[in-house]
């Protein structure tokens, strides 16, 4: 478990409070009681209640145990997860943000190649595997999406030869 129930429960309740506040700020519809504020307010109240219940530990008995003891087969060696697991997990979304920032300037082929290379190396691939992936995957995707499906992909520094 990444964060304790108490922390996430308080988070959910805070979200609910914001939803109620935001909902009540909505302008009404003239001549009518029911407007755009009803739905967010109701949801916000629900979130407040759920958050409080989670923080108090209600419903914990229903959660399936994360990994039941003895669930692993006798022959499987359980390898230890890589170090800095939680931080490493943030690499994919960071790479997506990089894509948004760079794709117009560098172009699709270069950006996608860099992303593939970075992710592949981070997953423990040797350059012998990572380089071909970085070189072959972007043109393949380019052919399917730009060639067949006509999605406009930016050319940037390196235009596709087809």
């Amino acid at each position: 478990m990444l964060l304790s129930d108490r922390v996430t429960g308080v988070g959910v309740a805070t979200l609910g409070a914001f939803a109620v506040y935001g909902g009540l700020q909505q302008p009404g519809v003239p001549g009518q009681d029911v407007g755009p504020s009803v739905f967010p307010t109701v949801i916000g109240l629900g979130l407040l209640l759920c958050g409080a219940l989670v923080a108090l530990g209600v419903g914990r008995g229903f959660e399936a145990p994360a990994e039941a003891a003895g669930a692993e087969g006798p022959n499987t060696v359980h390898p230890s997860p890589p170090r800095f697991g939680e931080l490493r997990a943030l690499l994919p979304p960071v790479l997506l943000v990089f894509y948004v920032l760079a794709v117009d300037r560098l172009g699709f082929l270069l950006t996608a190649g860099l992303i593939a290379l970075a992710l592949s190396l981070a997953l423990g691939a040797r350059p012998r595997l990572a380089l071909p992936i970085a070189v072959l995957a972007p043109p393949f995707i380019h052919i399917v999406f730009n060639g067949l499906l006509r999605v406009p992909l930016p050319e940037g520094l390196l235009a596709a030869p087809w």
Binding site: L96, A112, I115, L117, S120, L121, A125, L129, A137, F145
Partner: peptide
Amino acid sequence: RAAVMPVVLLLCAI
């Protein structure tokens, strides 16, 4: 995985 996941991520973006 090191070959599959980069392709999946690129497909997510595109």
